[in-house]
C-alpha cells in the first residue's frame, strides 16, 4: 500500500505535465540550409519532450511563409496550403491525424528568411475542458542571409525573436518578446520543451529513442515568465530543436462557448560545433 501511495503523486505529476505541455511540432530537418532544397515538413500536435501522447489535429486554417526578398523593404506572402497532406501519424498502437508538406525548392529558393506560419483550428482538450490553438512560427533560412527573422507578422499572438532562431550554438542563450495583438505581454506564462524524439517524415512516426532523459517529469518542460516588458531569455543546453510556447496570451479567449487558450509557439534550433 505504501508503494501504491508513493506512486500516486508521480502519476499525477506526469498526467498534469501532459495536460499542459502541448506543442504543435512544425519540423523540417534543418532550419538553415546552405542551398535551397525541397523542404519536407512534419506538422504534429504532441508533447515534444515525452514524444506523446499525440493529439488528433483538425483543419489547418493558415499555412504560409512571409519572405523578404534581398533589397526589398516589404514582405511577400507565399501560400503553402496546397502542399499540405493530411496523414495518419503513428502514436503507439494507434494513429492520429497530422500533416506533412513538401514545399518545392522553387517556392522558397531565394536567399533569405522565410517565416513559416501554421495556424491550426482550435483543439478540444477534454481533460481540461478547454480549447487550445497554437499559432506556430518556424523561421527558415536559405543561404545564411538574414532578411526578416526579427520582424513581426501582425499575428493575433506571436513570439518576436531577439536572436536568429535558426543560427544558435548549443549552450547559447535565446531571447524573445511575447506579443498579443502586437503588444508585449508582461509576465506571460511560457513553457520550453526540447524536441526529444526526432520526427520520421518517411514513416510518419517519432523515432523510438529519446535524445535526453529527464531527471523528473517536472524537467520535461522548463517554466518561466516574461518580464514586465514581455521579454524572456532561455538557455539552449543541447543541440536540436527547442519549442517555446507562450500560453493563453492571444486576444481570443473563447471558442464554441468554452475557454480558449490561444498560444504563441516559436521553434528554435541549436547546433553544436563540428
Amino acid at each position: 500500500m505504501k508503494l501504491i501511495k508513493s506512486l500516486v503523486p508521480a502519476v499525477l505529476v506526469t498526467a498534469s505535465s501532459y495536460a499542459s505541455a502541448h506543442f504543435l511540432v512544425v519540423h523540417t530537418p534543418e532550419m538553415l540550409v546552405e542551398r535551397s532544397t525541397d523542404f519536407e515538413m512534419s506538422i504534429v500536435f504532441t508533447h515534444a519532450f515525452a514524444g506523446g501522447p499525440t493529439m488528433e489535429m483538425g483543419e489547418i486554417e493558415d499555412f504560409y511563409a512571409m519572405q523578404t526578398k534581398l533589397g526589398a523593404d516589404e514582405m511577400t506572402r507565399i501560400e503553402l496550403s496546397e502542399y499540405l497532406t493530411e496523414v495518419q501519424w503513428h502514436a503507439g498502437d494507434e494513429t492520429r491525424t497530422a500533416y506533412t508538406a513538401v514545399i518545392p525548392r522553387a517556392t522558397m529558393r531565394s536567399l533569405g528568411d522565410y517565416q513559416v506560419v501554421v495556424n491550426p483550428e482550435p483543439y478540444y482538450e477534454a481533460e481540461e475542458d478547454i480549447y487550445i490553438q497554437q499559432i506556430t512560427k518556424v523561421i527558415l533560412n536559405v543561404g545564411g542571409a538574414p532578411t526578416n527573422w526579427d520582424q513581426t507578422l501582425g499575428l493575433a499572438t506571436e513570439i518576436r525573436p531577439l536572436n536568429k532562431p535558426y543560427a544558435n550554438w548549443e549552450d547559447g542563450v535565446f531571447r524573445g518578446i511575447v506579443l498579443s495583438s502586437g503588444e508585449p505581454v508582461p509576465f506571460a506564462e511560457i513553457e520550453v520543451e526540447y524536441l526529444n524524439y526526432q520526427p520520421d517524415f518517411e514513416n510518419l512516426r517519432f523515432d523510438e529513442d529519446a535524445e535526453l532523459e529527464a531527471p523528473t517529469p517536472a524537467h520535461e518542460y522548463v517554466s518561466l515568465r516574461t518580464d514586465a516588458n514581455g521579454t524572456f531569455s532561455i538557455g539552449l543546453p543541447e543541440e536540436g530543436w527547442w519549442g517555446i510556447a507562450a500560453l493563453g496570451v492571444g486576444p481570443v479567449t473563447e471558442h464554441n462557448g468554452k475557454e480558449l487558450s490561444q498560444d504563441a509557439v516559436l521553434w528554435v534550433q541549436a547546433k553544436e560545433s563540428d
Partner: peptide
C-alpha cells in the same frame, strides 16, 4: 543571387 551575411544586398 548574392548577399552578405548581415543581410545586406549585393
Amino acid at each position: 543571387e548574392g548577399a552578405f551575411s548581415d543581410g545586406s544586398a549585393a
